[in-house]
Design a protein around this nucleic acid. Sequence first.
DNA 1: TTATATCATCGTATTTTTACGATATTAAAA
DNA 2: TTTTAATATCGTAAAAATACGATGATATAA
Lengths: 112, 112
Amino acid sequence: MKHTIKFNPYDVEAIEMARFAKALGHPVRIEILRFLESQACCFTGEIVEVFPLAQSTISQHLKELKEAGLIQGEVNPPKVKYCIDQVNWHKAQKLFNEFFNQMSDVSRACST
Amino acid sequence: MKHTIKFNPYDVEAIEMARFAKALGHPVRIEILRFLESQACCFTGEIVEVFPLAQSTISQHLKELKEAGLIQGEVNPPKVKYCIDQVNWHKAQKLFNEFFNQMSDVSRACST
DNA sequence: TTATATCATCGTATTTTTACGATATTAAAA
DNA sequence: TTTTAATATCGTAAAAATACGATGATATAA
């Protein structure tokens, strides 16, 4: 054990934000969220039609978005209606906003 | 070839945003950026001291942040001074802002 | 009861990510 | 000239992500 300043593994907010960011880390998931927004809500099938990916692949992406908390699915067999999860959405929005704005406050002189 | 509406692979903005998001998709990279901000700029060694990861691992994370455009490194052997890349930072800030705010504009009624 | 339609999940292959120790690099210090 | 100090890169192993086809699950329609 070296006696340097160690972070208690990771900061809770950093973990939370990284989780959202990771979910946003693939173009198709960004576009799924956009599409979901433009339709307010929609079924899996509508999304599958729009993207050049297999149904199972889209379903997998939807699962990741759901697990990250960004969307929620209301199951209504045999259909599932997805929409943005408003609570977590705003949480993510706030995290990213604070993150980027906090950065902008500081003097950015990159001196020697 | 089914004649459904296909996206021309992916939207340029979606790709760009996903690239930023992916770079933000790991807690340690979030914290590195925060740390970098609190110091305005700093050397690799200062970052290595703070996190419980090997020097080579931190260097790898820095490389990813650099390749995503979020930071830049001014080499000054044997040291390298890193700071936030202001141009791309603001680009990312804008992308995320638009993304989240556009979403909030729309009516969110999740009707049947 | 037996399809059917709509999704999710499974199995699998390929690629990417994450992390480490070891080694290479390079200007300055001895 | 030979260290030394600070980083990057390489090699590698383990885990996770990505994509697909095939199969499973479930309420409704026939």
